[in-house]
Simulated scan of single mutants.
Amino acid sequence: MTELAPVELKIGDKAADFDLPRDGGGHVRLADFAGKPLVIYFYPKDDTTACTTESISFTALAADFAKIGVALLGVSPDSVKSHDKFVKKHALSIPLAADEEKAMAMAYGVWREKSMYGRTYMGVVRTTFLIGAGGRIARIWDKVKVAGHAEDVFAAAKEL
């Protein structure tokens, strides 16, 4: 039995399609953002310190992203119910997709082996994609450090 090689998207690649349930009900699809630049940020888990800081930072800049015509979407393997609690607790304004089957994380190559305290496990590697209006990846931030990240993404988005 051969293992599938992990997907590795590169700048210029077409963004992988998705259709996932989201916070507040309904679904979110790549097609919903057709013709509009999109930031997709993948994060490991709702309501953990770094993930909360990252989501609050993007929420703080949401109006600025909207002014330049760029949409935002957060994605984690958490459930819609978890996302709903997370959004309410922290007054988040960004749609959050529930990728419980990890299909989107695998399609974007962010479901990878991680290690902590000598233990290896599979999980979401914090990664952000900036997708241009034509549906192609314009920029990738891998293994994101949260401090100042939303501001860096905004600066890159203004250059599109």
Rank of each mutant, 00 (worst) to 15 (best):
T128V: 13
A138W: 00
P21T: 01
T48V: 11
R139F: 13
G24T: 02
T128I: 06
P37K: 05
V87P: 00
V75M: 07
V125K: 03
G25A: 08
L30M: 12
P77E: 01
P77H: 04
A157S: 12
R29Q: 15
S93Y: 03
A105K: 01
E3S: 14
D13H: 13
G35Q: 11
L61G: 13
A156K: 06
P6C: 05
K81M: 04
K102E: 09
V87I: 15
C51H: 02
K67D: 15
I140M: 07
G148A: 14
Y43R: 03
W141L: 05
H149T: 05
G118T: 13
E101S: 15
A50K: 04
A156N: 08
S115L: 07
L96Y: 08
R126A: 02
V146R: 09
A97G: 08
A15K: 00
V146W: 12
L9N: 05
A138Q: 15
F65Q: 01
F33E: 02
I140Y: 02
V125L: 14
K14I: 12
R22Y: 07
D78F: 01
Y43G: 03
K89C: 05
T59G: 06
K85L: 13
V125S: 09
F154M: 10
L92W: 01
G25W: 10
K85W: 02
V80N: 02
G148R: 11
V80I: 11
E151P: 01
D17S: 14
L30S: 10
S115R: 08
G134A: 12
E100Q: 12
G118E: 11
E113S: 12
I11K: 15
D13T: 09
I56H: 03
M106D: 11
F65E: 00
K114G: 03
A147L: 09
F33W: 07
A150M: 12
G24M: 09
E151T: 11
A138N: 04
F58S: 03
F129T: 02
S76Q: 05
K143P: 00
G135S: 09
A62W: 09
T128F: 13
A50R: 06
R139D: 15
A62T: 09
W111G: 00
A91E: 11
K145Q: 13
G25I: 07
T49R: 10
T127P: 00
G118S: 11
K158T: 09
